[in-house]
C-alpha cells in the first residue's frame, strides 16, 4: 500500500514503536523499514511514512501531527538529455 510522509511532535527520545502507539497506528500502516526520523531534534519533530488513509486519520485526530507531505522522486543532475539548442 502506498505510503506517504507525515511529521509529528513527540516526547524527546521517541522511537518508532512509541510513535506508533501514540498515534494509534497498526503495524501494517507504518513503513517500518523507513523508521522514525528526527527532523528537528531541538523541537522534537520527527518524520515517518504511513499509509495515505492513516495519514489523513492521524492529521485529523492528532494536532501534533501534520501531513501528508510530498515525497517526490529525486534524480541526479547528470548528463543532460537535450531538448536541443534554441532555434
Amino acid at each position: 500500500m502506498r505510503k506517504v510522509l507525515i511529521t509529528v511532535r513527540l516526547p524527546h527520545g521517541a522511537n518508532l514503536e512509541s510513535a506508533r502507539r501514540h498515534l494509534d497506528l497498526a503495524e501494517d500502516e507504518v513503513d517500518t523499514g523507513y523508521g522514525l526520523i528526527p527532523v528537528d531534534p531541538v523541537n522534537d519533530l520527527y518524520a515517518m511514512r504511513v499509509t495515505e488513509a492513516a495519514s489523513l486519520r492521524v492529521a485529523g485526530s492528532h494536532p501534533e501531527a501534520s501531513g501528508p507531505y510530498a515525497d517526490p522522486p529525486i534524480a541526479p543532475m547528470d548528463r543532460i538529455e537535450p531538448y536541443g539548442r534554441p532555434e
Binding site: L5, G33, Y34, G35, I37, P38, V39, P41, A47, R49, A70, D71, P72, P73, I74, A75, P76
Partner: peptide
C-alpha cells in the same frame, strides 16, 4: 540515497524521504 528502490523503479533515483533519513544520519 539515489540507489533507493523503494519506488520499485530501475532508474537512478530515490525519494525525498530517503534524503530526510540521510540528513538525520549526517546530523
Amino acid at each position: 540515497v539515489l540507489l533507493s528502490r523503494r519506488r520499485g523503479g530501475s532508474t537512478l533515483d530515490g525519494l525525498l524521504s530517503d534524503a530526510i533519513a540521510a540528513y538525520a544520519h549526517l546530523r
